[in-house]
């Protein structure tokens, strides 16, 4: 393996972490903004909800039951956590790509913030934190809807909310890191080219066993690890592998955060 690829995170992760003091101020700022634009918040919730309803109405009866961990579940019980995880991903990516690009290139917001005692690490973690809060809100709304539709198979479902927030953290970090490399709005056309395959091929719609010899590739999808976590909580079926899933998501979050803060420093503190 390329030693540079390994040593870079080792070098920048500690510096980025050490510079963090009050990221919560960025969340406070977002709260001011959303106080007037709360309708925007709602929009992010409807898309996954529509998916869920359409599957509940039609697809479920067609597909039949699914067996996991020695128990059988209806197809909509199986799909719902996958959709919840995907919603967390989409919300976070949305919040931390186009929005962040606008703030870096056009609104000069971060330049103003960096002229105060706030650091690039504060800005990055604060913006990512805002996305995590949003993911959490969506997850709660989604969980309540699932419960109302009778799709909650286990009381452990409450753990799906922190799981969705962790997914939000991971994708917000990666999305923000990626955004710092973008040069123009055209580059954002690649974002769905990444998130759509992840959405389709992360055991969202069918279990890992269906992937056959391609199963190993599914493991490369960060969303897969998130789906597994949410599903384990929702169905109340899990084993030691969830430690691995958590570790992957936390690791990616930290690297994404460090890259994002380092890049913001590079771009704005010239």
């Amino acid at each position: 393996m390329n030693t540079h690829a390994v040593s870079l995170p080792l070098r920048i992760v500690p510096t980025a972490m050490l510079s963090i003091r009050r990221p919560q101020r960025m969340i406070e700022r977002s709260a001011y903004v959303y106080r007037r634009g709360w309708l925007i918040l709602l929009s992010g919730f409807f898309e996954p909800l529509l998916y869920l309803l359409s599957i509940r109405v039609g697809l479920s009866a067609l597909v039949g039951d699914i067996e996991m961990g020695g128990r059988t579940f209806s197809y909509d019980e199986f799909v719902a956590p996958g959709l919840m995880a995907a919603a967390a991903m989409n919300g976070a990516v949305f919040e931390c790509t186009a929005n962040v690009f606008y703030k870096i290139k056009h609104s000069k917001l971060y330049e103003a913030v960096l002229a105060t005692p706030m650091s690039a690490g504060d800005v990055a973690l604060g913006e990512i934190g805002g996305a995590v809060v949003r993911s959490g809100l969506y997850a709660i709304a989604f969980a309540i809807t699932m419960w109302a539709l009778g799709l909650v198979a286990s009381p452990w479902m409450v753990l799906a909310i922190p799981a969705a927030m962790l997914i939000g953290f991971t994708f917000a970090s990666l999305g923000m890191a990626l955004t710092t490399f973008m040069r123009s709005w055209e580059d954002f056309e690649y974002v769905p080219a990444i998130t759509l395959p992840l959405f389709l091929f992360s055991t969202t719609f069918y279990p890992l066993s269906q992937y056959g010899e391609w199963a190993w590739m599914v493991g490369l999808s960060p969303l897969y690890h998130g789906v597994e976590l949410v599903r384990a909580a929702d169905l109340g079926v899990w084993d030691g592998s969830i430690i691995g899933h958590i570790a992957v998501l936390v690791g990616l979050s930290v690297v994404g955060l460090a890259v994002a803060s380092r890049r913001i420093e590079r771009l704005l503190l010239t």
Binding site: R25, R29, T116
Partner: peptide, 19 residues
């Protein structure tokens, strides 16, 4: 480099919070 998403008063408030 004012915060264009906020009002005059909010600009000052949140800026103070950064300090």
């Amino acid at each position: 480099q004012l915060d264009t998403e906020l009002t005059v008063a909010e600009n000052l408030l949140i800026y103070g919070r950064y300090f």
